[in-house]
């Protein structure tokens, strides 16, 4: 089982994600620089948070044109689990792999704080060990984290069960309090909050077990395959 962690110029949660994958969950992980290709033997791909290209133009807009995104697209089509966190989510949206857009928070400020998520879809490769409507204490840290979709798309998302996480409170003005979504097949998941910042009790002041289940879900998913 091998998890690829993609590094763009300006990614800054790549090392945190790698630490959690390898040191906390004992997974085999490898960094991939955005100008390189992804090898065939990758079982899951994670696009970590950060400020790819300094968030210029729009968060994720430039990284979405990186060469590696073509490989990510191919893997997405093959049904390989792909997770985008924060800037990774923004990149997946800009690349058209996930629906919607991420706009400036209604406060117009960068926000770093703890909140909690509610699991709305526990069938994805990253949520299949969580209970439906389970609460996950987790931090957010973003400036352009307000998820936006028009009403028609929202209806479609609901119908296809593509809303994966909702915030338990109004955080940043996201449409329908959406914090994370998946593609129609459910293998590509994007979320604004940072699960890698919540899996260790030392840095999680509330409860580290629920967000650990996101990674344990991945282990369950790709472990079964092998």
């Amino acid at each position: 089982m091998k998890v690829g962690v993609i590094v763009f110029p300006g990614s800054n949660c790549d090392r945190d994600m790698y630490h959690v994958l390898t040191d906390v969950f004992k997974l085999d992980a490898e960094y991939f620089w955005h100008e390189k290709g992804l090898p065939k033997n990758i079982d899951a791909v994670i696009l970590p948070g950060g400020f790819s290209y300094g968030d210029r133009l729009r968060s994720g807009a430039i990284a979405a044109h990186s060469p590696i995104i073509n490989d990510v697209r191919k893997m997405a089509e093959k049904g390989i689990p792909i997770l985008g966190v924060c800037n990774g989510f923004q990149i997946l949206v800009e690349a058209g792999l996930l629906p919607g857009a991420l706009l400036k928070n209604t406060s117009l400020n960068f926000m770093c704080r703890w909140t909690s998520l509610i699991v709305e879809n526990n069938k994805t490769p990253f949520t299949n060990k969580l209970k439906l409507h389970q609460k996950i204490p987790i931090p957010i840290a973003n400036g352009e984290g307000r998820y936006y979709v028009d009403e028609l798309t929202l209806k479609k998302l609901k119908k296809n069960n593509q809303i994966v996480f909702r915030y338990s409170e109004v955080v940043n003005g996201s449409t329908d309090r959406i914090a994370g979504v998946c593609n129609e097949d459910g293998n590509v998941v994007g979320m604004m909050p940072h699960p890698e910042r919540a899996t260790e009790s030392a840095i999680n002041p509330i409860d580290n077990k629920p967000s650990s289940l996101i990674f344990e879900s991945l282990i369950k998913t790709i472990g079964v395959k092998n």
Partner: peptide
């Protein structure tokens, strides 16, 4: 407004 969690 400051990311005080990054770097875990």
């Amino acid at each position: 407004q400051y990311d005080h969690e990054v770097g875990i």
